[in-house]
Nucleic acid binder design. Sequence first.
DNA 1: ACAAATGAGACTAATATGGTATCATTAATC
DNA 2: GATTAATGATACCATATTAGTCTCATTTGT
Lengths: 130, 130
Amino acid sequence: MKLITRNTDYALRALCYISKNKNIVTVDELVEKLGVPRPFMRKILQRLNKRKILDSFKGQGGGFRLKALPEKIYVIEIMRIFQGKVVLNRCFLKKDVCPNKGKCVLRKKIGIIEDNLFKQLKEITLASLA
Amino acid sequence: MKLITRNTDYALRALCYISKNKNIVTVDELVEKLGVPRPFMRKILQRLNKRKILDSFKGQGGGFRLKALPEKIYVIEIMRIFQGKVVLNRCFLKKDVCPNKGKCVLRKKIGIIEDNLFKQLKEITLASLA
DNA sequence: ACAAATGAGACTAATATGGTATCATTAATC
DNA sequence: GATTAATGATACCATATTAGTCTCATTTGT
């Protein structure tokens, strides 16, 4: 079980690198620095662009740049982009079967853990990583 | 992203049910109560037996029974059985490429979160769920 | 002997993750 | 305006994990 997937990990490291450069950064530069397969890196960056984390510039001299301040970019947001909604507190039983609907202790306990996890993740910004 | 898989969820609910019965419980009874597919339930119980969480009895009148006290059965242990070691704090970069080996802030942060998660999970026993 | 239970293990299906390949579009430069 | 260097979009493939099935063997009470 892992909290962070490769996708997210690469994205975060790419963002860290970009945040340290005032200039525009190209895919090739990131590929060289991080050793991530080029097409994969591209896909990740494109996704970050679509989700308004990055700005992109086409054509010669183009590349990527942060769209927001590193202080405003949250790790949990990047996780959501690549790993979907982070929901731990789910019941797998069919609703009509679950023997204690409404007051399931397991779900409650997991819910509390989830809340704590969120609180911690929400405090981690790109700025705090760099 | 989910913290707990179906496997684990079913296992926990089965264990809860079993813990409330002094008698031996059969697969069929659990299947009826929880609405989980029979062969899947069997597999889960067999695994719990192998890992010494349950005792099993073959033949007519057989079934399953808790091997330890509910106070001594930890949710994290069940998670490990069905989801493998719970390790969140991993770096995906090749070791010789990682730009800040040893002092990677991301890993440190995730490490702290992991520790907290563990602490919480370790406190949840089967007894506390029932 | 028979029936009712679990043990073992191979097999299949569905989903998520990781990764590739190709062609289109844009913009600077010559 | 042609070339070139960049990203955009998207379809596709590979691998791993999770979920689930099927079948036959073994045990044990009646």
